[in-house]
Amino acid sequence: MDLIWDGVTEALRLIFSGDSYVYEVTFTSLLVSGSATLIALVLGLSIASFLAFRAPPGRTLALSAFNAGMALPPVAVGLLVSIMLWRTGPLGQLHLLYSRTAIVIAQAVIATPVVAALSTAALQGLNPNLRLQVLALGASRWQAALLLFREARISLLAAAMAGFGAAISEVGATIMVGGNIKGSTRTLTSAIVLEVGQGDFETAIALSFILLGVILVLVTLFTVLQQRRPPA
């Protein structure tokens, strides 16, 4: 218990002393996971709209793949993205390995199936005639999609939160493709792994609390947005 308590006090000290290392890894975490979540939302919602509204042949197969993708092992994703980005890999010429962009790619690969699968379920849960009604009101395809997203916003925001959670809590792929380079690709999760490896449990616990705090604040904001009454 002492260790945890020491961790909490260390966390508060690091935050309020303006420790640049902590702020930097927190910023890196938010930047890469925020970007990955945005990419996952764009891709996931596009995939979900296509699967839910167009009902293409093979939809069940595609959905099974995305549902399975929710359990995608991050280390396997990390390995695959690393192979793609290696100097001799198909995307080696982009020189992205051990960069923040590489982490964004890996986290987006992990978060996209989560957003896609949960968003498809959310949109399929809407009354199928609602889309026809919205189109009959005179909506273009884009206007119809936005209106239907608004109707399904509670479930879609839950999907966004799940996607963000998958990205920011991820560590295996982040270390593999990012290299855990101080000042560049070190995130809160990869820093925690490093501190534990070095036996500095106090700092590791402090960083864990900061990570939890960041997640709590952001998810609370999402939840407030989710539970807000729709505008008239």
Partner: peptide, 10 residues
């Protein structure tokens, strides 16, 4: 339509 299919607003 047969169902009112109203949007979640006023």
């Amino acid at each position: 339509f047969q169902e009112p299919l109203l949007l979640d607003t006023s």
